[in-house]
Computed example of a mutant assay.
Amino acid sequence: MPFGKIEPFDVSSHNWDAYCRRVKQFIALNNISEDLHVATLVTHVGIACYELMCDLCSPDLPEDKKFEQLVKIVKDHLEPQRSEIAERHMFRQRKQRQGEIVSDYLKSLKHLAKHCNFRDSLEVNLRDQFVSGLQSEDMRSRLFAERNIDYKRAIELALALEAAERHAAEAASGASSSAISEGLHRIRSSPARAERGRMKRREGAGGVQADAAARAGALSLEGSRRGCWRCGRSGHPPSRCRYKFYSCDSCGQRGHLKVVCGNVDKCSDAVIQKNTKGQLFFND
């Protein structure tokens, strides 16, 4: 049972070198003898890549080639020799994009630098292009201010500045959200408080009116129990007496009948009573 597993090669990925390195590690891990290296590669690349090998090796077969020969044949087809000037031009044109984080920007620069043949000056070129291509003017100015800054220090400082900016933005966003929430809570609660105030005022006014009506009803009931002074009958208050506008046959005054004329003070047409607040009024 072999150790590890290698998936078939994706011809469209054009990453043949990386795939071949993995195959070599698989061979070393399983201690596969040299005469089986080609067989190991051919049996793992998949049908699409094997057919490509057959076309490239024709009229020979891939199995007839040595391991390094077969690797180079596929590499020359998938990754032909590139122009160093063109590759370096693409490298110099790479800038940090809007919304792209620093780590992704650096990863892209490293990928483009693979074919630029920088050799010993790789880190210097990466540092220079990384700093000059930063989107943030403040971050770039901060790195410019560092004297004799090397590649590693430039990356560390840029990552730290990015993290500080992100934390500051999150803190400001949290404070703004809190202020907005508090404002919305005030706006939403103000109508509720106003409505509760109106309800209390209504209840207060309604209580006063109810008390007044109750007192008036009590007085009317008391008057109806004592009997009507206009006609002498019980069961209704004087204000609702049907003889309210009759003229007395005895004295000629309006507002009562003859049978009660002696009980009415001077047979006055206007009789003084008290209302529910204890104030005097004239009731016809």
Rank of each mutant, 00 (worst) to 15 (best):
P2A: 06
K5S: 12
K5R: 13
I6C: 15
I6Y: 14
E7G: 06
F9V: 12
D10V: 08
V11S: 13
H14K: 12
H14L: 10
N15W: 10
N15M: 14
A18Y: 02
A18K: 08
A18D: 06
C20K: 08
C20R: 07
C20M: 07
R21W: 02
R21D: 02
V23G: 00
V23N: 00
K24A: 14
Q25C: 12
F26P: 02
I27N: 08
A28V: 06
N30A: 00
N30L: 02
N31A: 14
I32N: 10
S33G: 14
T40N: 12
T43C: 02
T43N: 03
V45Q: 00
G46F: 04
G46C: 06
A48F: 03
L56M: 01
F67S: 07
E68Q: 05
Q69H: 12
Q69C: 10
V71H: 07
V71S: 06
K72E: 13
V74S: 14
D76F: 10
L78W: 06
L78H: 05
Q81F: 15
S83D: 02
S83T: 01
E84I: 10
A86D: 06
E87Y: 00
R88W: 00
R88K: 10
H89L: 11
M90R: 15
R92D: 11
K95P: 00
Q96L: 03
R97P: 05
R97E: 08
I101R: 15
I101C: 12
V102E: 09
D104T: 01
K107S: 05
K107D: 05
S108C: 03
H111K: 11
L112C: 02
A113H: 02
C116W: 00
F118G: 01
R119E: 15
E123K: 14
N125P: 01
F130P: 00
S136I: 02
S136R: 11
E137G: 05
D138K: 12
F144C: 04
E146D: 02
N148L: 07
I149Y: 01
D150E: 07
K152Y: 05
A154H: 09
E156D: 04
L157T: 10
A164R: 09
E165N: 06
A169T: 03
A172W: 04
G183A: 13
R186T: 03
R188A: 07
S189N: 15
P191F: 13
P191R: 15
A194W: 03
E195D: 09
R196I: 12
G197Q: 15
M199L: 09
R202D: 08
E203S: 08
G204A: 14
A205Y: 11
A205G: 10
V208L: 03
A213C: 08
A218T: 14
S220T: 07
S220R: 11
L221G: 13
E222N: 15
G223H: 14
G223F: 14
S224C: 03
G227V: 05
C228N: 01
G232P: 04
S239V: 07
S239T: 06
R242A: 13
R242L: 13
Y246Q: 15
S247F: 13
D249S: 11
S250G: 15
C251F: 12
G252P: 11
G255Y: 02
H256N: 07
L257A: 08
K258N: 01
V259E: 11
V259M: 12
V260A: 07
V260W: 06
C261S: 04
G262T: 00
N263C: 05
N263S: 10
V264R: 11
V271M: 12
I272L: 10
K274Q: 07
K277W: 08
K277Q: 09
G278D: 04
Q279W: 03
F282Q: 07
